[in-house]
Design a protein around this nucleic acid. Structure first.
Lengths: 213, 213
DNA sequence: TAGATTGTTAATCGATTAACAATC
DNA sequence: TAGATTGTTAATCGATTAACAATC
């Protein structure tokens, strides 16, 4: 844990976690890095290197215990403790996220939903009443919210992000198609859907070109 | 265009495109790699290296013409031609995507929405009537659809992806929290929201640990 | 022309893969 | 014990950054 773990490693952890969860559901007790590497289409070497950033979870001659490893990665990812979140932006995307129950199962608890549109305020979403963003500051402070999910249009996002930092938010899951400019005390994880679709477009074009040749 | 472009470079292109679009909106005519690097918080060297994978778009002593560069990157990303897509899964996520008009502006045209739930089939979403997935095969073939957006639960996704390949789909934008196993003739771009949220969770925990020390 | 900035080569840095001794 | 597989070091590969000649 002493050395700085690279972001490339961290982004692979949820995928390991997902595969181990599936193995667990299938009743598999142990797995070697080689077997797992074949399923996941990565090298066994990479799996062992990645895991050894956090400790020796395996056993020579045996491999890894699926349940133990699953739990350990969960702990590394911070899933053993609950997180309180608010969703800002009660549109379809906000609704999709709040209704996706897997997040709550993993300890991400949606405490409130906020919007600025009077037509939306007062509606119920997934048993939560949509509140006015004017009340957001007070809510964050009183309920000690750590994480804000930003499912709002591009225009308001940057200034709202700065407000969120002032109000004590520690992490922003940002779906607005813009880069936020908060201090490095606030963790930002971007989901830029447009960027993703353009990447798909490039790869599709590239594949077409190869076929032609 | 001869050398294989790395995925790291490709994933940066939409971000350049976004920043250049903003500059264009602001009426900025030219920009140097240095100025852009300061805005984007990357090195000027990286910008020049990235762009020179695709050609020399700049001019010594001047920099880059914003409009030209914007258009060139658009072409590289394949945005100059229209794409026909279908959305499979008419839930909130599917609705969020179809209603987000920026995609259509960029040439991604939603030709159909499909679902397997009889309660949803027949509903109208963004002026499109939700059809039965049973009719998907015929629709893809007759309308020559290239891209499928998969906003369905995990369980059905892998087998559906294999069907989509058989039916002629060339690219899948996958929101199901599972890896698809199609041939390399089909381009897959994953948006794993759970993975993203877990990554955020890790980074948040990591930041907390640093503060304590 | 002089100054600015690119395009591109070279140097550095970091991440991935290979190899193997340690050990269960 | 013998076989298997890890943990970890070393080698390789690739990506990023630095430097600078070319040139507008």
């Amino acid at each position: 844990m002493i050395n700085k773990i690279s972001i490339a490693v961290i982004k692979r952890l949820p995928r390991y976690y997902r595969y181990l969860g599936d193995l667990l559901d299938d009743g598999i007790v142990r797995i070697s890095s080689k077997e797992l590497s074949e399923k996941m289409k990565v090298t066994a070497s990479q799996i062992r290197q990645d895991l050894n950033n956090f400790g020796g979870f395996g056993q020579q001659g045996y491999g890894y215990n699926v349940e133990t490893l699953y739990e350990e990665i969960g702990k590394i990812l911070g899933l053993e403790k609950k997180h309180s979140l608010v969703i800002i932006g009660a549109g379809n995307l906000g609704q999709a996220i709040i209704k996706y129950t897997d997040f709550e199962k993993r300890g991400f608890i949606f405490k409130g939903v906020f919007d600025s549109n009077p037509k939306v305020i007062g509606n119920t979403m997934h048993n939560i009443i949509v509140q006015d963003v004017a009340d957001l500051k007070e809510f964050i402070k009183s309920k000690n919210i750590q994480i804000a999910v930003l499912t709002i249009p591009k225009s308001n996002a940057p200034e709202l992000a700065n407000d969120l930092e002032k109000w004590g938010i520690k992490a922003i899951w940002n779906f607005a198609p813009v880069d936020l400019n908060v201090s490095d005390k606030v963790t930002v994880e971007n989901v830029h859907l447009s960027d993703s679709l353009m990447t798909l477009s490039y790869k599709l074009k590239d594949a077409e070109n190869k076929t032609k040749k």
